[in-house]
Computed example of a mutant assay.
Amino acid sequence: MRVIQTLFACCLLGLSLSLAGLGAGVSRAEGAHPLPVTLSFDRPVNAAEAPLLLAMTDGLFSAQGLAVSVNTVAGSPEAIARVASGASEFAFVDLNALIRFRSQNAAPLKAVFVLFNKAPYAIVARKSRGIHVLADIEGKTLGVADSDLSAGLWPALARQNGIPLSHVKQSRISAAVREPMLSAGQVDAVTGFSFQSAVNLRDRGVPADDLAVLRFADYGCDAYGFAVIVNPDFAAKRPEAVKGFVRALIAGTSLAIRDEGHAVDQVLTRMEDGSRDLELERLHAVVRDNIMTDEVNRNGLGGVDPARLERSIDQVGEGFKFAKRPQASDIFDDRFLPPRGDRLIN
């Protein structure tokens, strides 16, 4: 009997060690202790960052042997600069800001995971001002924030839809007053993120049935949205850490989609005076419009269609003068993605 018990204990020990080895991932490959890395967000967090925050709060990064700390900076250009300098290993940024950066800078920064398969750019308008579809913007006043990257894609969008740029008056405004000015009727429409401006306006009391959310993606814009970029030196030295980061983010995205309530509860712990109902609405919009697209349903999370990315680079170039046009291979590196089957969301 004692021999049988001993054999049984050994089997259990062997199984435990095997399971630990599977879960260790990066830890085993990179060392016994968690590897500290820094992730930069390009703006204050809200439900749009839920997949990344869940990877932190629910132990998904630590399961990959990573100890992830975060900081928040003022916009994608600053976050990209931090990664380029090595001050941060990773950043969550607008892929179109990376396209601009690579057109003017030789630093070989690339995205390794695209979370927003469709960019969230939109024109948010008041139907009571006569705007129901994109063509209605002619003869109207469009409020554009100086820091808004959607303004750079507006020329391509207007051309694709036969709208002369001279027929739309652009009013340069601060991002801080974008929603208040539209709410007060000082402009007819504003550019912004569909999950940001539209949700914020409803929170300010603008009736939902008076809002027209004209998503660039619905009118021929090929742009991808927010993505994770990595410092190239770090990626070369620690490829398994980058793969582990990506695996954790896929798990976090899957969890955010399955349980939006839990995801928002975790997001609220990192917000000041956040509204649960508002962030639930925001996360639902992000998942529906930006993350779980037809392309993602076919090909899985995180990747890009190179031909589409090339088209989007050309569209960015219509509103932003490139010093040197980057190629799709300059922008995205798929070497750190797991196989398609591991990226599909069922």
Results as ranks from 00 to 15, higher is better:
78 E>W: 07
326 P>L: 01
68 V>C: 14
220 G>E: 08
318 E>M: 15
181 M>W: 11
219 Y>L: 00
13 L>R: 07
324 K>N: 06
256 A>Q: 04
54 L>F: 10
342 D>C: 01
57 T>D: 15
319 G>I: 08
1 M>I: 05
132 H>N: 13
149 L>I: 08
172 R>K: 12
308 R>W: 05
139 G>E: 00
241 A>Y: 08
298 R>I: 07
179 E>H: 06
88 S>W: 01
332 F>P: 02
239 P>W: 04
259 D>T: 03
155 P>H: 10
233 D>H: 12
140 K>M: 08
209 D>I: 10
186 Q>E: 13
43 R>Y: 08
184 A>F: 10
329 S>H: 12
191 T>V: 08
84 A>L: 08
248 A>P: 00
292 M>A: 14
324 K>M: 09
309 L>P: 04
291 I>A: 04
250 I>R: 01
204 R>Q: 15
237 K>T: 14
48 A>S: 03
324 K>R: 14
191 T>Y: 07
135 A>P: 00
242 V>G: 06
271 M>P: 00
290 N>Y: 06
33 H>M: 12
91 A>P: 06
157 L>Y: 00
236 A>M: 13
309 L>Y: 08
139 G>S: 09
70 V>H: 07
60 L>I: 05
166 S>F: 06
264 V>G: 00
197 S>E: 11
250 I>Y: 03
276 R>M: 05
140 K>Y: 04
18 S>E: 13
332 F>D: 02
75 G>R: 07
177 V>G: 03
331 I>V: 12
71 N>G: 12
